[in-house]
Amino acid sequence: MQAPLARLKRPSALYRMLGDRVFVVVVTLLALGIVALSLGLGYYLYLGGAQAIERFGFWGFLTGTTWDPALKEEFGAWPYLVGTLLTSFCALFLSLFPAIAAAIYAAEYAPKWLVGIINYLVDLMAAVPSVVYGIWGIFVLAPFLRENLFLPAYLWTAEHAPGILPYLGNPSGYGFFTAVVILASMIIPYTTALARDAISLVPQAQREAAYALGATRWEVMRLAMLPYARGGILAGVILALGRALGETMAVAMVIGNTNIMLKLLGIPLLYPLFGPATTMPSVIALEFKEAVTDIHLSSLIALGFYLFLVAFVVNLLASYLINVFKVGGQRA
């Protein structure tokens, strides 16, 4: 160990005295900058939305279900908040198993030449702009789902169980379920890429030990690899969830943008499965440009503030989960 160090040129006295301290100061400042940036973002969103929050009250705005920019000028975030959470979590659920299956296949089962192709395509999927997903949604996915899923299901239900028709909603193709499918296909690459890396980072010894105990391939995966990699897989899931919560354009293009909700136990909690729904980012993007009155604009910014809070809470929960699930000693 001594020999290579001795060959280095002896650094100057100033460097030895200040080097570390300068580095610490720079790193600290940059890290604090990020903290200041996110707090400042939240603060200015609050300032912009203050007019709406003052007029309707913090909880009043959160739980209000009317969004009428023209006649009553009354605004409420509830349908948008619920729409955002529902679409994101449903998309996450829908994407989780295909994504992890693809990751396992790419990391363990696929022949080498196929791994290259899979990885390339996964990265490509992540790089496709969301407006392209949106156009594909309008012109391909929505008509396809309408013809092959919505209409048959709707007609069958109309015949056999007309009571649940309101929960299916208008099967026009532009609505909640289409948005969930689009979102799921947009977030699959995030989960897949991180899960793939996490699985391939599992030490070879772990694998070999399991094989040595007589485990089958599936058992190795289930008992030795996935538990070890779950921290990394979860990190991918959370990244995907963040993307789903904030996704705007593709969702706005196919979701139908309607804030009429279904009631569950008297509380508006659901959107019809096939019928139109809405999300916070999409209404902000859609109405911001032509919001003429101050209260309308302020309500849209307030919506941004609530979205910020939602993202904050979700991330907090996520980091708690990662801590719970990570393998002892290993940083997830």
Binding site: P69, A70, K72, M253, N257, I260, L286, E287, E290
Partner: peptide, 20 residues
């Protein structure tokens, strides 16, 4: 009386779809 005029309005039809 129910909807009014504006750049964005609160559409009332239950069978509606919004598009961008």
């Amino acid at each position: 009386q129910k909807v009014g005029r504006g750049n964005s309005v609160d559409w009332k039809a239950p069978n509606k779809v919004g598009a961008r």
